[in-house]
């Protein structure tokens, strides 16, 4: 019975704290995405700007994000039934967007980031826990290009 109470407490804590963290994170993400709209990240390998590039370098950004207890239990229940695991959608979305933002922040004065790659990997939690896909790392990397300024 005590176990059940602890579990329910953890789930409630996870739900409230987790959704508060998520809302805060999304607010921060959309604010920074707005601020970095001037720096496009593209998946093109070559681009018109490459011809008159003055400088190019590899930029990376990564984020490790964990899902809250509530969503972990929710995903565990969902795993019994099957179907779309909605609980993990926002986790992956947040991690990827955060990683792309950090990649842009690595070189904020660049003109474009070409050949952007995004990679996601799960960090295993260890132990006998079957639900190890609860912490994920997103990595974004690409080549930041600085274009020669006109008239120089």
């Amino acid at each position: 019975m005590a176990d059940l109470l602890i579990l329910m407490g953890l789930i409630a804590l996870g739900y409230f704290a987790g959704s508060a963290t998520e809302r805060r994170h999304y607010r921060s993400i959309s604010k920074r995405e707005e601020a970095f709209l001037h720096l496009p990240a593209v998946t093109f390998r070559s681009h018109g700007s490459l011809a008159d590039a003055s400088e190019s370098r590899l930029v990376t950004g990564c984020a490790v994000i964990s899902v809250d207890y509530f969503k972990r239990i929710l995903a565990g229940l969902r795993a019994l039934v099957g179907g779309r695991v909605k609980a993990y959608e926002s986790l992956l979305d947040r991690a990827r967007r955060e990683a792309v933002l950090r990649m842009k922040e690595a070189d904020p004065t660049a003109d474009i980031i070409v050949n952007t790659r995004i990679e996601t990997s799960s960090i295993s939690k260890g132990g006998s826990n079957r639900q190890s896909v609860s912490t994920i790392e997103a990595l974004a990397y690409g080549t930041a290009i600085h274009v020669k300024k006109k008239g120089t």
Partner: peptide
């Protein structure tokens, strides 16, 4: 994983959110 970081990560695993220690670790390792 680093033991000290893992304890913090264990707490963070309940409320969710970014595991800053791990992000740093991954960044350093990369």
């Amino acid at each position: 994983k680093h033991v000290g970081r893992d304890i913090m990560a264990g707490l963070k695993n309940i409320v969710g959110g970014e595991l800053k220690g791990y992000t740093e670790l991954m960044k350093e390792s990369r």
